[in-house]
Design a binder for these strands. Structure first.
Lengths: 142, 142
DNA sequence: GTTGTTGCAAACAGTTTGCACGAAA
DNA sequence: TTTCGTGCAAACTGTTTGCAACAAC
């Protein structure tokens, strides 16, 4: 369990409101869960963890989608068919995911512009962007 | 429709046999379809295109999985929930996908080792690999 | 002839939607 | 008090599996 950074409740409320959304106990609970573990969760994991609090999975789906739109949640490649989401800072970044413990960290300063220019020249494409994700073993699992 | 390269039937048969699989008309038809269009197809598109030939979608799923294992098909990011697959040469490579016509080309010489070393140093991760896909506009759509 | 493949139908898993009730603003 | 969010159940979509007939080797 790797605590990333805990958003004060006021700030969190403001984030939701800014996005035109209401601040509800369910939404807070879901976010707090992601905040508590940088390995992230699948929808069913969140639903299972918050079942005691009677939070339905429909709400989990909708809240995760909202947090994704707000760029506070990023989807990472998962093994099975189910998607996994991890907390992240808004803006472009790449995820580095541990294949053992699933812990994810962001790399924000991965510059691929040189590579993009090279590819543009080789292929004639006007490169607009990329999806990039690294995987490996984190220092604890190594 | 961008013809990539047409595998002679003998070679194709050999490829399947080498993988411990039989060479069937269904498998050939599915592969020929991918061979005919570098924009690739989703499962339902393949099934629809080959429905006149009475090829069931179960076969489409199984053949695509086989071709993926043989590394002759790569999955690319698609908009909707359905996966899209494009023909590719075996081995590690990255896909460059046109957001307008979906045409995909491979880039094989994209060296990320420098970046991987940098990230390893910054994060303490033992980086083992990456998923990378570029998107933009191909020269025809530009 | 033996063994793998096909294609149908049924099962499954993940996700979305309709709607009445309840809570945030 | 208005509007949005919740949670249940049902619907949907994409994918997998069981199995008998069939085809490749």
């Amino acid at each position: 369990m790797n605590t990333i950074y805990v958003l004060p409740q006021k700030e969190l409320r403001h984030l939701f409101n800014k996005a035109g959304l209401r601040f509800t106990p369910q939404r807070e609970a879901i976010w707090r869960l992601f905040e508590s573990n940088s390995a992230g969760f699948t929808v069913s994991q969140v639903a299972a963890a918050l079942a005691p609090q009677k939070i339905g999975q429909t709400t989990v789906y909708r809240t995760i989608k909202a947090l994704q739109d707000m760029e506070y949640l990023k989807r990472v490649h998962a093994e099975g068919g189910e998607h996994r989401f991890v907390a992240s800072r808004p803006g472009h970044s790449h995820m580095l995911v541990c294949r053992s413990c699933s812990k994810a960290v962001e790399c924000t300063d991965c510059d691929l512009s040189v590579l993009e220019k090279l590819i543009a020249k080789q292929t004639g494409f006007a490169v607009e962007g990329h999806h990039l994700e690294f995987f490996g073993l984190c220092s604890e699992c190594f």
